[in-house]
């Protein structure tokens, strides 16, 4: 199980916390009430700067790769597993980026965008390279792909 992100106490609205704690009267419910308040606080590390295509599956794979790499340093029999897992990990990263770009293009209302989606699907270039090459004109300006 991946642990939950810790709360960011800098983002906390203390007046709301105070209002929530004023309702805690019964002493046997105090601890449960405080835990509920803490669970409702804003969490750290979930801002807009987070990579959009980085999924929880990829996070799990990253941890597995790290674990296998550590095992493979002492056990040569694990190197095959490490190589296989690394290939799956990299291909999943490519697929995730590809899906993210495709979804972004599909949301655009420009009818020419379907041509670019078709070009993207028939292209053999990795999506990371497409990001550099494709320049998409749109009525409201350029579509920003990040």
């Amino acid at each position: 199980m991946i642990p939950r992100m810790r709360p960011s106490y800098r983002k906390v609205d203390w007046s709301k916390v105070q209002a929530g704690m004023e309702g805690l009267i019964n002493v046997y419910d105090v601890w449960k009430g405080v835990r509920d308040i803490i669970d409702g606080l804003p969490r750290a590390g979930t801002g807009s700067s987070r990579c959009k295509w980085w999924l929880d599956v990829l996070e799990n794979m990253k941890l597995d790769i790290r674990y296998l790499r550590r095992k493979a340093t002492h056990d040569p029999a694990q190197r095959t597993s490490l190589q296989l897992a690394t290939k799956v990990y990299k291909s999943t990263i490519d697929q995730s980026r590809y899906d993210h770009i495709k979804n972004m293009l599909a949301k655009s209302k420009n009818p020419d965008i379907f041509l670019y989606i078709h070009a993207l699907e028939t292209s053999q270039i990795l999506p990371g390279s497409i990001l550099v090459k494709v320049n998409i004109p749109a009525p409201m300006g350029k579509v920003a792909i990040s």
């Binding site: 106490y9 203390w14 916390v17 704690m21 004023e22 805690l24 002493v27 601890w31 405080v34 803490i38």
Partner: peptide, 22 residues
Amino acid sequence: DHISYPFNKFWMKKFPDTLRRL
């Protein structure tokens, strides 16, 4: 439990009776 010491001090400052009872 994701409770920090500044939160405990805030609790002690605003609701000392609740904290003492707990």
